[in-house]
């Protein structure tokens, strides 16, 4: 899609959307949001960027292959569960630490895994389906 307005617009909107997706991820435990919604927003922002500037530009922004994100996300989720197994003797049992007034725990880590995986899954499909047909 060769549109100057869209190209210029997404150049500004994409980073904002990425920040917004992180915001959704972090606040998700107390307010609407979460890893799934956040991951979808991040993936949508990169897909939009790819639509306007070409998928190669989007891949360059992402730096890693989306398949790597899938693997990393799944691994993060599995590891967060294994921590529960190691510390509390039950797989996926939550562990919480307090840093000042902020609470951090393995469910947050799990959510980060979901976030990474969702970004990877959507972008894998987008990149695959947008691949140019051989002519």
């Amino acid at each position: 899609m060769n549109s100057l307005i869209l190209r210029t617009g997404t150049t500004f909107v994409m980073p904002l959307l990425l920040v917004f997706s992180l915001f959704l991820l972090i606040r998700g435990h107390n307010l609407p949001g979460g890893g799934f919604a956040g991951g979808l927003v991040a993936a949508a922002s990169l897909a939009l960027y790819g639509l306007s500037n070409g998928m190669n530009a989007s891949k360059a922004v992402l730096r890693v292959r989306p398949e790597t994100l899938i693997a990393a996300g799944l691994l993060t989720a599995v590891v967060s569960g294994a921590l529960g197994l190691a510390v509390r003797g039950s797989y996926l049992a939550p562990i919480w630490w307090s840093i000042g007034s902020v609470k951090v725990g393995t469910p947050i880590l799990f959510d980060v895994g979901v976030y990474l995986l969702v970004v990877g899954v959507v972008l894998t499909m987008v990149f695959a389906l947008s691949a140019e047909e051989p002519s």
Binding site: H29, G81, P94, P107, I108, D111, V114
Partner: peptide, 18 residues
Amino acid sequence: QGRNVVNVILVDFRALDT
């Protein structure tokens, strides 16, 4: 440890399903 019930269910109570 969270006020968003949906998210707590997803990442804690029903994390294995997720």
